[in-house]
Write a protein that binds this DNA or RNA. Sequence first.
DNA 1: TAATCGTGGAA
DNA 2: TTTCCAAGATT
Length: 357
Amino acid sequence: MTLAKRKAPKKREISSAALLAWYDRHKRKLPWRAENGVRPDPYHVWLSEIMLQQTTVKAVGPYYARFLDRWPTVADLAAVRLEEVLKLWAGLGYYARARNLHACARVIVEEHAGIFPESEAKLLKLPGIGAYTAAAVAAIAFDHKATPVDGNIERVVSRLFAIEEPLPASKPLIRERAATLTPDQRAGDFAQAMMDLGATICTPKKPACALCPWSEPCIARERGDQETFPRKTAKAEGKLRRGAAFVVMREDGALLARTRPDKGLLAGMTEVPTTDWAHDFDIHDASAHAPIEAKWHRVAGAVNHVFTHFPLELIVYRTQAPKTVRAPKGMRWIAMQEIDGEAFPNVMRKVIAHAMS
DNA sequence: TAATCGTGGAA
DNA sequence: TTTCCAAGATT
């Protein structure tokens, strides 16, 4: 390629320089981003990337600030108990991320002397770090030439090349095309530029193509059906599950609770006692699962919650217990002032709020 | 490969 | 109101 050609790329070429120029003007200001030309702290990059998995920037903001405030370094995070991490993560969802975050911090400290490895391959071996996050940290924190592919980039690339094959089957092809676009220099900025483009211009609905630095070479744009990309195969929706939850309020305001198993849904999180959540739940044998003998009051209405793969409806029973009542085996009392900071997932906070209504 | 795994906000 | 989906990883 001649020098002249490099300086003045054809408009129909997908030029990384054009995107980087756009990024330099329009990039979002985010808490985990360092100032121009400054390498961000790998710990900050990693923490933000884990939190941002399947989670909006807006939702992550306050959690990121609280984590960094409480645990300024990866060593600080590694030093605390998992329970403390789950408490601070409560409400953010996908709790396996918190467990893996903590496990990863310990591996970094114990096996890497507290220093994040720089290569994509080494990062990939760490708990909770998959193909996307390994590439993202390598590129953003260390400026290695790596190509993370998230939902934004899948959408951008699908439109640029008008990829007809539906997701997720098209992932390998998209990854291949994305890698082709990645420049040797500023790979981290390029990755973030792709994501910013997807988040602010190349949006799922009503993309602002008029403002896009890649409008000219975009094949879908040329065809006019850009909004139909990426193609996707329909996924089956989950069936409703039902159950009953039991809220026992002690006279002093303490709440009866237990810890969920360390695997599966809401693993390791705190919950009030409940029946199983089943498709064939029968309200008539709910009381048989009550944690203590008491005069139970059925709270009117129900709590509805939607998980990724199924909707849930919980009816709620409430009772008051005297101070003398002991917690049944496997359960414990949580003092009233501890409830807010406890590792209750949001579905449980809904149950508790409903019981108080 | 296909399920599993949370939540809340935007359209 | 319903639908979609947001910087995915794990099994």
